[in-house]
Every structure is written in structure tokens, then in C-alpha cells.
């Protein structure tokens, strides 16, 4: 996987985790989980954001603001953000070295 994409996916997972703790933290604490490391996790998020190319980061933020999630999985040849079909040529090895975007909605594509 493209290293930048790997970082974006990790960032998005991390953002989801932070949101989950902020929204459902008490439920998890009732089960016995500690969430004392939330600030550490937020620091790790900032650190990761700093490693990503600023231009890509800007786009990621815009897409997140617009859609909630900037990176979406491609499942069954479709963008799961807008359900547009992704051309087979996108999956080819020649494209593995760069980020790919849905031609229809612009979200960043990820093949799980």
C-alpha cells in the first residue's frame, strides 16, 4: 500500500477512536477500560498529521469536513462513499505508487 495512504488510514482510524472515546467513553469505562491515555492519543494524532504532506493533509481535512470520512474502502468495484463504479484500471499495479481518488465524489480510495 502507498505509504501516504497507510498514514491517512491510520489517521482516520485514530480520529474515529478519539471520537468514540469522547462520545462513548463512559460506556467503555463502565466495562472496566481506562481511557486515561486520551491526551497521548491526541498527541500521536498531531504527530502523524505532521508527517503527512501538507497538501494531502489539506485535502484530507476538506474531504473530512465535507463527508465525515475522507478515505473510503472500495468494495465490489464501487466507491463506498458515493457508490460510483471504480474503473478496473485503478486497481492495476501501475497505480499502486500514488493516491487515488474517486472520479465521481473525490474521496480517497482504499482497497481493504
Amino acid at each position: 500500500m502507498h505509504p501516504q495512504l497507510q498514514q491517512l488510514v491510520a489517521l482516520q482510524d485514530m480520529m474515529g477512536m478519539i471520537r468514540e472515546i469522547e462520545e462513548k467513553g463512559s460506556e467503555l469505562e463502565d466495562m472496566g477500560f481506562k481511557t486515561a491515555g486520551l491526551d497521548d492519543l491526541k498527541n500521536a494524532r498531531e504527530e502523524l498529521e505532521g508527517k503527512i504532506d501538507p497538501q494531502v493533509m489539506g485535502l484530507f481535512r476538506r474531504l473530512t469536513g465535507k463527508f465525515g470520512r475522507a478515505v473510503v474502502p472500495v468494495i465490489g468495484n464501487s466507491c463506498t462513499g458515493c457508490f460510483a463504479l471504480i474503473p478496473a484500471s485503478f486497481v492495476s499495479k501501475t497505480n499502486a505508487g500514488r493516491l487515488q481518488y474517486c472520479e465521481s465524489c473525490g474521496r480517497i480510495l482504499y482497497w481493504p
Binding site: 497507510q6 488510514v9 491510520a10 482510524d13 491515555g37 492519543l41 481493504p112
Partner: peptide, 22 residues
């Protein structure tokens, strides 16, 4: 799974929040 590193990173982040050995 195509990208095990993604899961690895997620679980490591989760542990940084607090151990899940509860």
C-alpha cells in the same frame, strides 16, 4: 486481510489509551 499493518497500528493506538487487559 490485505493490510495487516493498518490493524496493527489501530490496536497499538488503542493500547496507548490504556491497557485492554482488564
Amino acid at each position: 486481510i490485505q493490510n495487516p499493518d493498518t490493524i496493527l497500528q489501530m490496536l497499538q493506538s488503542r493500547e496507548s489509551l490504556g491497557s485492554t487487559a482488564v
